[in-house]
Nucleic acid binder design. Sequence first.
DNA 1: GAGTGGTCTAGACCACATC
DNA 2: ATGTGGTCTAGACCACTCT
Lengths: 230, 230
Amino acid sequence: MPKYIDIAGDIRNKIHNETYKTGSQIPPEYVLCGEYDCNRETMKKALKILVDEGLIVRRRGAGTFVMNHASKEKITSLSVTKNFPDQKVTSDVVVFEVIRSDARVADKLGIDKGTFVYHIIRNRSLSDTPYCVSESYLPVAMFPDLRKDVLYGSLYNYCEKTLKLKVQSSNISITSPLATKNDAFLGLNEFDGLVQIESIAHMNDGRTFEYAIIRMHPFSFRYEDCVILA
Amino acid sequence: MPKYIDIAGDIRNKIHNETYKTGSQIPPEYVLCGEYDCNRETMKKALKILVDEGLIVRRRGAGTFVMNHASKEKITSLSVTKNFPDQKVTSDVVVFEVIRSDARVADKLGIDKGTFVYHIIRNRSLSDTPYCVSESYLPVAMFPDLRKDVLYGSLYNYCEKTLKLKVQSSNISITSPLATKNDAFLGLNEFDGLVQIESIAHMNDGRTFEYAIIRMHPFSFRYEDCVILA
DNA sequence: GAGTGGTCTAGACCACATC
DNA sequence: ATGTGGTCTAGACCACTCT
């Protein structure tokens, strides 16, 4: 584990501990460098992490200060299975087919129109309570052996455990359209409001592996973010 | 302007230009250092920016690759006025009062319960179309001279232009609760779905200056993010 | 083994805030 | 004037990927 990650973790603890209190100034770089026996650039790297997390602000000439960090954690996963490790996740596979991609799907996945993709629709539940309807498109070329039984579990786990691929990042777009008859699984009537997350997910080698449209009951939805505006 | 920001900008352009195409590998650090006449650590700083933006991925031992960057921009402002510079923003000030903060508001603002805060409710329109209902709480101590006429315009502009304070970051939480009678301005009936953004906004000196609850018509809402999962 | 990115250091100089 | 953080460099060593 790199030293700067450890240092960031330790200082993060001190903030959560109130060793460094909200609004207060923390020691300057050169002091922290002494405490943690590291170079100034290493300390900068550590503190940069906390800045990105919105826990501290740094002002040239003034110092480093603890932000009001009343709020919660940042989202760390789009995987239903990982987000709710303590709950039973079940999936009903409504559609599992291979089709030629249309222009829209091809564009999202960054492939040529007409390339074969899996088209998958799953009704997913948490502890037997309907949670979301997810529609996914995945290039067949990247998952030559995808079988239906995988879909009852976690697609992300399958990528990471079985295929040894790493999920890197996802560009998401959240909107709130109206429900259709296809959303009845969520307990919604046509024209009720719902929350839709479109996700374009990438491997750590940069390839796009999934375009997904996830539709949720509005009451199941919550999204947290820290927006740096400066 | 720091060199690493310039370099990041130039490489970002090359990615948008397709000089560096989606999925392709870009030159290794030492080559880029030569091209831009900089040190390796400076180049790392530049590339880190693009990694954080989700434009590239870097893999030790393998190289640096351009991600599929089909998707849009990251949110850069919570200010309605700044987000829609070309549209006429109007605000109807429904409530403007000074009250003692209750426990919830005090907690969000990081102040003591009972401290005086402004309580402001505004119905805001874009080009005369209802856009959102915003309810804000601001510590009176931080805005001793806040007058109602400021509220017809942009509170964020007032902070930055008049008070010379810089808005640093905001912790937001997005949910989708039901409309109440108070949301009639948005054209919604009671029990219709809406989108609510709670925001806790901070100055660049770390002080929390606003707790806001913004309620929008679902059709007006879209939120984009790049979630790094690795 | 050769090439890539990741970490860390020591030191320099600068810009800004505060007093 | 002092102290703070911001930038940049030169160089070292390491860990990983690829073939």
